[in-house]
Simulated scan of single mutants.
Amino acid sequence: MATSPADPLTLEVVELIGTVVARYYAEYEQAAATHALTGAQARVLGLLSLEPMPMRHIAQKLKCEPSNITGIVDRLEARGLVERRPDPNDRRIKLAVPTEEGLGTARRLRDSLDFAREPLAELSAQERTVLRDLLKRMLGVEAPGAP
């Protein structure tokens, strides 16, 4: 039986998710500031620490305008945290690539984010697995072992 989007339990879950997101972003902004970065710069650097990518892919992943990403990458490049390199598969495309300093900054930033890590540590491995699988299901991402 489907639930109404306005049933009390659904409303409570939505409110709790909103609170988690707000706390995460507040801590992220604070952690970014300790590295003299804006939250947007920190998010771009964190994304690039996973894999180099063209500006338009960064914009797609962060759901913003490519022109905003160009400015953010310009500022990260001026700080020596990112550089632009030709894509080895298509030299017409420029990739934003973190420098060694950028990778170190991204790692320190990620290591300083305790908001989610501390409460999650209080959950058992089974509870974290259930939470992960439920979040993936909500997002339409297939969970391991799902049919």
Rank of each mutant, 00 (worst) to 15 (best):
Glu27His: 04
Arg92Pro: 03
Ala42Val: 05
Ala26Asp: 11
Ser124Asn: 06
Leu134Phe: 10
Glu12Leu: 15
Gln30Glu: 14
Glu77Thr: 12
Pro52Thr: 08
Pro5Met: 00
Pro88Leu: 09
Glu12Gln: 14
Ala36Pro: 01
Ala125Asp: 13
Val14Gly: 07
Gly46Arg: 08
Arg92Asp: 11
Ala2Leu: 14
Asn68Asp: 10
Pro88Gly: 06
Ile69Gly: 00
Glu27Ser: 03
Ala125Val: 14
Tyr28Lys: 07
Leu48Asn: 04
Leu45Tyr: 05
Gly102Thr: 10
Pro86Asp: 09
Glu65His: 12
Ala96Gly: 14
Ile93Asn: 06
Arg137His: 13
Leu45Asn: 08
Asp7Glu: 14
Leu16Gly: 08
Leu48Ile: 05
Leu11Met: 15
Thr38Trp: 07
Arg84His: 08
Gln126Asn: 08
Ala36Asp: 13
Pro88Val: 08
Glu29Met: 02
Ala36Phe: 07
Met1Glu: 09
Pro88Ser: 11
Ala143Glu: 00
Thr105Asp: 07
Pro144Ile: 00
Tyr24Trp: 11
Ile69Val: 15
Glu122Val: 07
Pro98Ser: 10
Glu15Met: 09
Ala143Ile: 03
Arg75Met: 00
Met53Pro: 01
Ser4Met: 03
Met1His: 12
Thr129Lys: 14
Thr70Asn: 09
Met1Lys: 10
Met138Asp: 00
Gln41Met: 03
Arg110Gly: 05
Glu118Ile: 14
Thr129Met: 13
Pro5Ala: 08
Pro98Asn: 06
Val130Pro: 02
Leu113Thr: 03
Ala59Met: 02
Arg132Ile: 01
Val130Thr: 13
Gln126Glu: 15
Ala6Ser: 15
Glu29Ser: 12
Arg75Thr: 04
Ala106Asp: 06
Val73Thr: 13
Thr38Cys: 01
Arg23Val: 06
Arg92Val: 00
Ala31Tyr: 06
Val130Glu: 10
Leu9Phe: 11
Ser49Trp: 07
Leu81Pro: 04
Ala121Ser: 15
Ala125Gly: 04
Leu139Gly: 11
Val97Trp: 13
Leu135Lys: 01
Leu50Gly: 11
Arg107Met: 03
Arg128Glu: 02
Val20Ile: 15
Arg43Gly: 02
Ala36Gln: 10
Leu9Asp: 06
Pro5Glu: 08
Ala146Trp: 02
Arg79Thr: 01
Lys61Val: 05
Leu123Tyr: 07
Ile58Thr: 12
Glu122Cys: 04
Gln41Glu: 15
Gly46Ala: 02
Asp74Thr: 07
Asn89Gly: 12
Arg107Leu: 12
Arg110Ser: 12
Ile72Ser: 01
Ala40Gln: 08
Leu95Asn: 03
Leu37Asn: 00
Ala42Pro: 04
Pro147His: 09
Leu103Lys: 14
Pro144Met: 03
Gly145Gln: 04
Arg132Cys: 05
Lys136Asn: 12
Ser124Gln: 00
Asp90Gln: 10
Arg75Pro: 00
Asp111Ile: 03
Ser67Glu: 12
Ala42Ile: 07
Val82Gln: 06
Leu48Cys: 05
Glu51Phe: 06
Leu45Asp: 01
Glu101Asn: 15
Ala78Ile: 01
Met138Trp: 11
Leu103Tyr: 11
